[in-house]
Computed example of a mutant assay.
Amino acid sequence: MGTFTWSTLATPIGELVLVRSELGLARVAFGTEGAAREGEEAAYPEAEKQLGEYFAGRRREFDLPLDWRFSSGFRREAQRALLEIPFGQTRSYGELARQVDNSKAVRAVGTACATNPLPIVVPCHRVLRSDGSLGGYRGGPEAKRWLLELECASG
């Protein structure tokens, strides 16, 4: 499975745990998740820098190698489609299902968002319910609202 290193980053929405493999960023976990900190603790300067710029409103997209090992099948397809939602915009779960050519897979898209191993960098926070309400978010509703407001203010 390879070797992992991890680091923590303090952010306006709480501590994030960044897990890196030889292929790139493999996981972004909210500190509240109690994520396993496997391998050695080691700084990931580029990811920390880019996330810091994002939270400061100075970065709209990330340029990091991503390791998709914690995602597969339809979930991976839906999670990759999240990267196509522009900064400052949102989509509904139904719109994302149609984007991946499976309009009946709204619940599966919701599950893909809920299990996204790379939140923030792969922007599942940009997906809302069809009525415009927030829907769920692993980091909690306050974090999702904060991220959407950041993008709206920086847009």
Rank of each mutant, 00 (worst) to 15 (best):
R60C: 08
R80H: 13
E142R: 12
E22Y: 06
P65Q: 03
A105N: 07
A97S: 05
D67H: 01
S71R: 00
F74K: 01
D131K: 07
R126I: 12
R138S: 02
Y137N: 12
G39P: 09
A26W: 01
A56S: 14
T90K: 14
F87W: 12
A10Y: 05
L16C: 10
G155I: 05
E40M: 06
S21H: 03
E40K: 06
F4R: 07
A10M: 13
Q79E: 00
A42S: 05
G2E: 14
H125N: 13
E15L: 13
Q79K: 00
R37L: 07
L18K: 00
I85R: 09
T32P: 06
A26N: 02
E142N: 11
A108V: 14
S21L: 02
G73I: 00
G132K: 13
G52P: 08
T90Y: 03
G31F: 01
G57R: 12
G57E: 06
S154W: 05
C124P: 12
T90H: 01
K144C: 09
L147D: 07
G155M: 06
E95P: 09
L147T: 09
L147N: 04
D67C: 03
Q99L: 15
F87T: 10
L64C: 13
R76H: 03
P65A: 12
T32N: 07
S92C: 04
V19G: 04
T90E: 14
D101R: 14
W146G: 12
Q79H: 00
G39E: 11
K104C: 05
I13P: 03
F30Q: 02
V106P: 05
C152N: 12
A35V: 06
R27K: 11
T8A: 10
I120H: 05
L16K: 04
G135S: 15
R58F: 09
T5F: 06
R59N: 06
T111Y: 03
Y93A: 11
Y44M: 10
A78G: 09
R126E: 13
A36K: 10
R58K: 15
T5D: 06
G2T: 12
L25F: 01
V28F: 01
E77A: 11
Q79T: 01
Y44S: 14
T115H: 09
E22P: 09
L66A: 02
R98Q: 14
G140F: 04
R98N: 10
E48M: 13
R107V: 15
E33A: 10
A78W: 00
G31A: 06
S92A: 14
Q79R: 01
L96F: 01
I13D: 03
A97C: 02
L23V: 11
T32M: 08
R20M: 12
V122D: 00
T115V: 14
I85C: 06
A153R: 11
P86C: 07
G73N: 01
G94M: 08
F30C: 05
E41N: 07
T111C: 05
P12L: 07
G39F: 07
S103N: 04
V127A: 04
A36T: 12
A10Q: 11
V17S: 03
G57Q: 04
E22L: 09
M1G: 05
A56V: 13
G73H: 01
P123A: 11
A112K: 02
E77T: 09
T32H: 08
T5M: 06
G52T: 10
